[in-house]
């Protein structure tokens, strides 16, 4: 996996990162930023559950950038490092994760790794804990997390060194043109 950018920034004076590289296509960048902000701004599914899914995606796809970023909205909703540390193999037996979080993790694994993981019991657990609107929001989020992680990795935008970094939660930008 490369930690040397395979593409250059399209924004003068900025290093290559996802936003500056995506700026090679301004409309794609604008619409992604708007979508991602709207997704995180929605409270249909809590930011904590979204972050749990994002952390799982980061580990499975091996996205170092994704794994080290924490969004402040999820932290404000009680997500801490003890919980994050349990988002690994064997999360099913964690005492720190709620049953809803375990159902979210199973769905995430099924989407990003193997759809067969979403057995009848796992589907039942998911629909018991989440409404259809919440499952749709989760599905959209995991779709974006996965695509973002793979795009970052394949374009060589992974950091060589990065510690845990708390960032402001993405917010809706001005409506795109």
């Amino acid at each position: 996996m490369s930690t040397t950018p395979r593409v250059s920034s399209a924004i003068a004076g900025e290093p290559a990162h996802f936003g500056s590289v995506l700026a090679h296509h301004p409309q794609l960048a604008e619409r992604f930023t708007h979508l991602y902000g709207k997704f995180w701004d929605s409270d249909v599914l809590s930011a904590r559950l979204k972050e749990v899914a994002r952390m799982r995606n980061a580990r499975v796809t091996e996205c170092g950038f994704c794994r080290n970023v924490r969004f402040d909205k999820a932290i404000g909703e009680g997500l801490n490092e003890t919980i994050v540390d349990d988002i690994t193999e064997g999360y099913e037996t964690s005492d720190n994760l709620t049953d809803t979080e375990k159902a979210v993790l199973k769905f995430t694994d099924a989407l990003i790794h193997d759809p067969e993981l979403l057995t009848g019991d796992a589907r039942a657990a998911l629909t018991r804990h989440l409404s259809p609107a919440q499952i749709a929001e989760l599905g959209l989020g995991v779709t974006l997390f996965l695509a973002l992680a793979k795009a970052l990795i394949t374009m060589g935008l992974e950091p060589e060194h990065m510690g845990r970094t708390e960032l402001p939660t993405p917010a809706p930008a001005q409506a795109p043109s």
Binding site: R6, V7, S8, A10, V21, L22, H24, H25, L28, F107, A110, L111, I112, P115, L118, G139, V142, T143, L144, L146, A147, L148, K150, A151, T154, M155
Partner: peptide
């Protein structure tokens, strides 16, 4: 270079869309 960026984003989205279609 710009084409490679679009290609990377598109390919990653196609992968994710296949996966969501299958899991759902």
């Amino acid at each position: 270079e710009a084409g490679y960026v679009a290609f990377s984003v598109a390919g990653s989205l196609f992968d994710a869309m296949c996966r969501v279609r299958m899991v759902m």
